[in-house]
Amino acid sequence: MITINALNDVFPILIQGIKITVSVLLASIVLGYLTAFVAGFCRLSKNVILRKITGFYVEVFRGTSLIVQLFWLYYAFPILFGIEVGSNFWAGVLAISLNYGAYMSEIVRGSILSVAKGQTEAATALNMSRFQRMRLVVFPQAVRMMLPEFGNYLILMLKSTSLVSLIGMTDILYYGDILRSSNLSQAPMVYLLVLIFYFILALPLIWLTRKLEGFSKKGVASQ
């Protein structure tokens, strides 16, 4: 079944999709983390309205399914507001980053809240301003708590990029589907290869997550 010849046919086609998969992933990571921090800080803000609005966003995106959000952004959003999201690329990136941004904003918020109260007090006793307390004392410790969780979300985001094939983006899975429909008997090898592609992309992320876990164990208050 899996002959070297067939592999030679399949491999070069699949590899064309890597560029899309990786660029969707990178854009989603950047935008996702950005959303996480902005929303996380908004939920800790003194402004009630800001807090409520962000709370609503977080609950809606955590309460519905990513694939539903993707379809909604791609098919429904342009109808409702009469504007296109731009392209299927942006629909995909927005769905992934808004979805995981909502989850990760909870990590941002939770980590900041779980820095020991004594830390803020000590910083106050040293006469630091509110901003200095956050920047020099609380945030550096909170980030160390966030990192391992953030690492796990990298892998979740990678996996979710496969959804963009459903809105017509030419990622790895899209080419896999094309190959399968042209020759069904190739399907096992095609999908196995697709899985291996994703796994290879995941390996550095897995490695990074382990590193981050090690790093975060070092510098946080625990006794």
Binding site: K159, L173, S185, Y191
Partner: peptide
């Protein structure tokens, strides 16, 4: 680790489309 870090969507396709061909 392999199962966990590859997309469930692809795994679905594998089972639905590819498994019968194995």
């Amino acid at each position: 680790e392999f199962i966990r870090s590859t997309p469930p969507l692809v795994q679905l396709f594998f089972i639905f489309y590819a498994w019968p061909m194995v």
